[in-house]
Amino acid sequence: MKKQIIIIALIGFISMSFISLMAQEQPDKKPTQEQVDTLTVKQIKTVNKILSAYNSELLSADDAKAIMDAIRDAKILGGKGVEDAITGAGFDYEKIKKLAPPPARPDEKQKK
């Protein structure tokens, strides 16, 4: 009986060690930026609210950076969904992107 308890405890310990190893982040994996193709109605409203403070014809680089920072701060993932929301609000997404390019990914910074 004592031997069975020791074996069960040992199996439990090994299982827990394995699970904790699997849960650790893999250092070899490169971070990726998630992107979404469509936004929710709430996210689109948030983008529209952010853009309402700016004139689409008179955007400066600081304005473009502030817009993109506000979108990121709102936890809205980049991608086609954000592009469509910005364009749908009457802004030139490509112009904003040129004025405020997305930040370099950590793996891209190392290449420079």
Rank of each mutant, 00 (worst) to 15 (best):
S52H: 07
S56I: 03
E94R: 13
D37I: 12
K65A: 09
A61D: 05
L58N: 15
L21V: 11
K80V: 15
N48S: 10
I44E: 15
D69H: 10
T46E: 14
Q43F: 05
D37N: 12
K49T: 12
Q24V: 07
L99V: 02
A89E: 00
K29C: 09
A104M: 09
G78R: 09
L99I: 02
D92Y: 02
Y93E: 02
P106R: 01
S20R: 12
I5Y: 07
P31I: 06
A85L: 03
G90H: 00
Q26N: 13
Q4H: 12
P103R: 05
K109D: 06
K42W: 10
E108V: 11
P101L: 09
E57D: 14
L51D: 01
Q26F: 02
T38R: 04
G12K: 06
S60M: 01
P102D: 07
F13K: 09
E34P: 06
I6H: 07
G90W: 00
R72L: 11
G78S: 12
Y93P: 03
A104S: 08
R105K: 15
A23W: 14
P101E: 03
Q24C: 03
A53H: 05
A89W: 00
I86A: 03
I76M: 10
G79W: 02
A9S: 12
G88K: 05
P102E: 13
D73F: 06
A23E: 12
K95I: 08
Q24K: 03
S15V: 13
V36M: 05
I19N: 03
D84H: 08
D92L: 01
L59Y: 00
I8N: 03
K80I: 13
S17V: 11
I14G: 09
P106Q: 00
K112F: 05
Q35H: 10
M16G: 11
G90L: 01
R105W: 09
S60T: 15
D69F: 13
K30D: 13
E57Q: 15
T46R: 14
D37C: 07
G81H: 00
T32E: 04
P31M: 03
I19E: 01
I71W: 01
I6N: 10
I6C: 08
L51A: 04
N55S: 13
E83W: 06
M16V: 14
D28I: 09
